[in-house]
């Protein structure tokens, strides 16, 4: 399979300068990016398999001595390419706040409790069909200093490796119906509504485990198309 990575697909991404998110003002390029053809250096990418992901890395509720506090959830979905094919053996890393909206990070001094049984870091590898699955705790919203009364909608950070270094993606997964959506400049940095909605997971009743955990589905679409698309598509 030979893949191509059209730069047009990048239009879904937020602009690097997005002044409502204040930290972009001094950290975004002021000069135009330089277009170039993809060479082997861009078209290949790191391959990390089972040796990188340990047995329980995908279950963030069993990393402590006891059970973490909060709402246990399953987050699952497929890593896909732009043609809808599963991306097999993709390394998926995630990190998130605990149910109170607090991160295990020295910089996070939000006055909300840490949970001794929850670190909020996980890893999984997609299977042959691109399917991945995590068990975790629903993260809380948290305040940040961007503007007065700024709160991030509840989110889980995802980092994904696809088929090449140019399909690398770091994104955030949101939860359906969050009342903070209209006020969050990071979520709204993605200007196209359809693209923005691709960052919102869907509630998955069918895969919710009775008496145990709600389930959310989050498909992650990476760059990459078949180099020779079928004629009659």
């Amino acid at each position: 399979m030979t893949l191509v990575y059209p730069v047009q697909s990048l239009a879904a991404h937020p602009p690097r300068l997005s002044p409502a998110y204040k930290s972009t003002v001094k950290r975004s390029p002021s000069k135009p990016l330089i277009p170039m053809r993809h060479t082997l250096s861009e078209l290949t990418g790191p391959v990390y398999g089972h040796e990188t992901v340990r047995a329980n890395d995908h279950d963030l509720t069993v990393h402590g001595k006891g059970e973490p506090i909060g709402e246990r959830i399953i987050v699952h979905g497929h890593v896909l390419d732009e043609d809808g094919r599963g991306v097999p053996n993709a390394l998926v890393e995630l990190w998130q706040a605990n149910s109170c909206g607090r991160y295990v990070h020295v910089v996070d001094q939000h006055p909300a409790p840490l949970d001794p049984n929850f670190t909020g870091a996980g890893r999984a590898q997609s299977d042959a069909q691109g399917y991945y699955r995590f068990v975790t705790i629903k993260p809380g919203a948290y305040p940040w200093g961007n503007h007065h009364n700024a709160w991030r909608p509840a989110h889980i950070h995802f980092s994904v490796f696809g088929h090449s270094f140019v399909s690398r993606l770091v994104t955030q997964m949101y939860f359906p119906g969050d009342p903070l959506f209209p006020f969050d400049p990071i979520f709204n940095s993605v200007t196209d509504k359809k693209a923005r909605n691709r960052m919102i997971s869907s509630f998955d009743l069918e895969n919710t485990k009775p008496d145990w955990a709600l389930c959310y589905r989050f498909n992650i679409v990476l760059r990459g198309r078949n180099a020779t698309p079928m004629e009659n598509r």
Binding site: A12, E82, L169, V170, K194, A195, R196, M199, V221, L222
Partner: peptide
């Protein structure tokens, strides 16, 4: 899919 998943910080 109708496009790729957008990037976030």
């Amino acid at each position: 899919p109708d496009g790729i998943t957008p990037s976030q910080t």
